[in-house]
Amino acid sequence: MDMSLLDLACNIATGIAFATGSFFLLVGAFGIVRLPDFWSRLHAAGVIDTAGAEIILIGMMFQTGWDIATLKLILIAFLLFITSPTATHAVSNAAFVAGLRPQDLKKDETEQTLSDVPTAAIPYRSMLPESEPAAPSKSSSGEGSA
C-alpha cells in the first residue's frame, strides 16, 4: 500500500514535470520559428536549453527509483547546466564579432562598455542602417575570407 502510494506520487510528479517541460520546449521551438531576428531567437533557444530540458530531466529522475540511472541523469543535467550558457555565449559572441546587430535596437550601450577593448574585433563600429540590418554582416561572414 505504502509503496504503491509512493509510485503514484512519483507518477504525478513526473506528469507535472513532463507537462511543464514539454510546454517550455514547444514554446521555445515555436519562438525559434516565430521571432524575427537572430538575437531574439537566442532567448527562445535559452528557454529550450535551460527550463525545458532541465525540468524534463528532473521528471525522468522520479521514474528511475534511486539507483545508478538517477546519478547519470543528474550528471546529464549538470553538464547541460554548465555547457549550455557557454555554447549560447559562443554563438552570440561570434555573431557580434562578425558584425550582426539586432534590428530595431531601443537602447545601445556598446560604445561605453567596449570603448577601450582592443580585442573586441568589431568591424562595424557604427550602427547599421535600419533599412537592411543583416545584409552587410552576411557578406562579411560568408565571403569575407572565402
Partner: peptide, 14 residues
Amino acid sequence: DLYDRVLALNSFGT
C-alpha cells in the same frame, strides 16, 4: 544566416 543555423543546431542537439 549562418548563426541562426548554428543556434538551431545547438538546440536540436539538446
